[in-house]
Design a protein around this nucleic acid. Structure first.
Lengths: 208, 208
DNA sequence: TGTACATCAGTGAACGCGCGTTCACTGATGTAC
DNA sequence: TGTACATCAGTGAACGCGCGTTCACTGATGTAC
């Protein structure tokens, strides 16, 4: 059954897309090649017509997830006034829905720690996507220098993904909700005070 | 070779201690029973004289790592004036040494995401230790209500462990160092502004 | 105190299972003539 | 346009390996008498 020219690309994309969901749900080593192929409606034998190895799929699936997240938040930001963009992203990031559905959420809290232990090539591929995500976040922070915006974006992502990891460890009760809420407040308060600090002297005094 | 009464307990403790290092280094599924026993100077067959299953060791090793971290920071805090305690903890947490030696560092960035995917019993055991760690951090935040201190402790831990995960993904270059530094600034700035906010009106205005 | 026996932490071979990967084969469709 | 052949995405059995777990056995030391 030979297929048309686009067919292989479509199948390849479908495997990557489905895998990116399942890997975020189950972890980078939490699901096997056979199950990933089954998710895409195929049998495991055909896997190596599309990827050199399981690891190659993992890299593609991560990149896909990161790109989708970065695009998603950029689009959300574009529909929001500049001074509210970061707040809107944080509010949509630290939600119960995101906490309870890692498969369709940010790959950083789901897979960051595992990727950091992966071989250098895989880790670097992920690091490049992480940098793009941070740049996108920095773009949403107006009224400060580029350097300050990047620094704030790094801290904001650390707090957001960290709070999501902690909230997932905590389960889905009150304790978990409190973590989400504490993370939101931390990012938003700091954004507010950092902005004031660059435009007023009184606020600057507070930072030191 | 029957051993004295304390011998088994000592061996058990040694296995747990060594495993807690290796699991933080390699991940919750990154190292096998045989290698873990070898680390403790034993052969794999004896494992089940000490633990019901591999998972039981994982739970004990996590609990051990969390207790050690919590104790460690409590001790550091006790040797520091109250108003500098959180800052001292943050400074010792977000370092290159900690980033580059996960085996002897905090279990939350190393294993949190994986534990969140584990079965409910394992996850809940970890969640209880997480709550203890947050309580300990809240104890180091003076001059605010208990509720506010806990909230700030949650956010601080989220930022700290998140920054460590991101820094490990980023490797060990400039980008990675910037993440550590951005995380430090975020926690310390917020601690300073939160304190001011409870004692001065001008600062309160800044938070809103 | 001395002796015979019981205990059980630890050994190392073996089992069963799942997983990543390989491979011979299939057959629908593209392509050459 | 029609026909014969080539291609190659996908199938499903099989391989080899590592891992968690089991088990018969060992032998130094605790304990009963």
């Amino acid at each position: 059954m030979r297929y048309s020219r686009e067919h292989k690309q479509e199948t390849h994309a479908r495997i990557v897309k489905k895998a990116s969901v399942r890997l975020r749900e189950k972890g980078a080593h939490g699901i096997g090649v056979a199950d990933l192929m089954k998710d895409a409606g195929l049998t495991h034998g055909g896997f190596y017509a599309h990827f050199d190895s399981r690891e190659a799929l993992v890299i593609e699936a991560f990149a896909h997830a990161m790109d989708r997240s970065t695009d998603h938040w950029r689009k959300i930001a574009e529909q929001t006034p500049p001074e509210q963009r970061l707040a809107t992203i944080v509010d949509s990031y630290l939600t119960r829905v995101h906490r309870d559905d890692p498969g369709h959420g940010c790959a950083v809290p789901a897979l960051g720690a595992e990727i950091a232990r992966e071989n250098p090539r895989t880790r670097k591929a992920f690091a490049a996507k992480l940098e793009q995500m941070i740049d996108m976040l920095a773009d949403q922070i107006p009224e400060v220098s580029r350097k300050a915006a990047r620094q704030q974006a790094m801290a904001a992502l650390a707090t957001m993904m960290g709070a999501l990891v902690l909230a997932r460890v905590a389960g889905s009760g009150e304790f978990s909700d409190e973590i989400l809420s504490a993370g939101r407040d931390a990012v938003l308060d700091r954004a507010a005070s950092a902005k004031k600090a660059t435009s007023g002297k009184a606020a600057k005094a507070i930072r030191h």
